[in-house]
Amino acid sequence: MTEIEVRDMKKDYVDEDVVTSALRGISFTIDRGDFVSIVGPSGSGKSTLVQILSFLDRPTGGSYRFFGKSIDDMNDRELAHVRNKEMGFVFQSFNLLSRLSVYENVEIPLLYAENVPAGDRKKLVEDAVRSVGLEEKLWSEAGRLSGGQKQRVAIARALVNKPNVIFADEPTGNLDSKSGAQIMGILDDLNKEGHTIILVTHETYTAEFASRIIRIKDGLIESDTPVETPRRSREDFFK
């Protein structure tokens, strides 16, 4: 089932009459349950692409359909609703509220969710935290955790609303290789459970955890190739 359908997508930034094209006509589709890496050098347009795919920004040309519905047909409130219900976010810098507990951080998306009774939140948060192996840290202050633990909390926060797609933007960028391997392992497990994973990275060996790699350069797709044998083990990560 096609989850993401991009056709001739363009994105121009205008700053004092100077137009910069970050995306210059990109087309691809991503099916539900795919694990796709988007790679490219700095300034290639990969971050812009993911911002649009994750409804944080709108394209200036072309079309983008998410589960068949065009981004052009949705207002900002609807985009926020889709982000909350269908998407999870994992950032390179974790973006945790350091003074809040693990529980309170993971609960944040549920605060904005419709149709999640307050009584169900506790179980959803506990399940998400357990799935990343941090149940003993549930009430610890997020700011006091290690980098790897913080990223696991961020993954739990991304999972808690049971989204279809998880966007992971350089999730191992701030981690040592051991923690990085754990995070990639968790993302791989989530993919096996049916979540679509869209991974943005500039590291080739991290990208090869995916089953497909889209390479972006100068705002265009340079290549879109399947990974014959994805790295799916911790040992592979250290190679």
Partner: peptide, 16 residues
């Protein structure tokens, strides 16, 4: 600012 960005990313509307 980053907290606001995060809250918006995970579904907070302007009104929230």
């Amino acid at each position: 600012t980053r907290e606001i960005g995060l809250r918006k990313a995970v579904g907070a509307t302007d009104r929230d």
